[in-house]
């Protein structure tokens, strides 16, 4: 085994990332729920001008709903497949 491989293996065994890093899926989930809610509310009763600008499409409403769905998808994923409990520190 080369020096490099020994050095990296040793660092890997001391590494804290896997054990201590939080679950990103939850952050994405909540952010998109918040964004989805804001944009959906903005789109519930659009002004004539906004509607005309967006070619008559309720774009805020649709985008907001899309973002809510994405947020829910990530939260459901966390629920169904929780992160494995971190392996105890070997120190």
């Amino acid at each position: 085994m080369s020096d490099l491989q020994r050095e990296v293996s040793e660092l890997e065994s001391k590494s804290a990332t896997a054990a201590r890093l939080f679950d990103l899926r939850r952050i994405i989930g909540y952010l998109f729920l918040v964004y989805g809610a804001i944009v959906t509310i903005a789109g519930i009763n659009p002004s004539e001008a906004d509607l005309a600008k967006a070619e008559g499409v309720h774009i805020n409403l649709w985008t907001g709903i899309g973002m809510l769905v994405l947020g829910l998808f990530f939260l459901a994923w966390v629920k169904l497949r929780p992160t494995a409990p971190p392996t105890p520190d070997e120190e």
Binding site: L11, S15, T17, A18, R20, I27, L31, V34
Partner: peptide, 29 residues
Amino acid sequence: IYFVVVLGIGFAARRSVKTSLDFFLSGRS
């Protein structure tokens, strides 16, 4: 909101940095 979340991720990830491998390569994890 976006700026706050971006910074929040930075602070939350801080706890995971223990070695140089964590800092530069996420501990290969």
